[in-house]
């Protein structure tokens, strides 16, 4: 078993020392033997109440992935404006055009005063004359 200090087997010296050591281990005081027995039972009981190894192994990884996802959601900038319509692509500019009361109406010609625009254009062309209202 030991092989000894030569390959042929144990020497007498090895057998003698082993016998002494074995004898000392067998002759341990009762208090020590009792403590060793309690230690063994405590070790086995600790094993019995441990969580399943699968859960123990993957729980930290799951927590890390959840944390990374939460950071991504909070800090990564969005490519679309929050007011942009996801279907038509209409953005904030379109809404401003629709709500601008001074702009030219976009919903037809019936309310446009063409005479006014023609008069304004003629006035602009004859800018050399006296200004209106002067």
């Amino acid at each position: 078993m030991m092989g000894g200090d030569t390959e042929g087997g144990d020497s007498e010296f090895e057998r003698r020392t082993r016998a002494l050591l074995m004898q000392s281990a067998e002759a341990l005081p009762g208090a020590v033997r009792s403590r060793l027995t309690r230690a063994r039972h405590a070790a086995l009981a600790a094993r019995s109440v441990r969580a399943p190894s699968f859960t123990r192994r993957w729980m930290p990884l799951g927590a890390a992935v959840a944390a990374v996802l939460a950071l991504l959601i909070v800090y990564v900038p969005h490519s679309r404006s929050p007011l942009e319509n996801p279907v038509t692509g209409a953005g904030l500019e379109d809404i401003e055009l629709l709500t601008d009361t001074d702009a030219v109406p976009l919903n037809g010609d019936q309310e446009v005063d063409y005479d006014f625009y023609e008069w304004a254009a003629a006035e602009a062309a004859g800018a050399g004359g006296p200004a209106v209202g002067s």
């Binding site: 050591l21 281990a25 341990l28 020590v32 403590r35 060793l36 027995t37 230690a39 405590a42």
Partner: peptide, 28 residues
Amino acid sequence: VERKAFRIAQIALRHEADALDVVQDAMM
């Protein structure tokens, strides 16, 4: 292994209580 382990630890540490502690830790 517990008795031999205790003797091995006791020879190394020359202290019974310490030897018992390290054997218990190793078992755990």
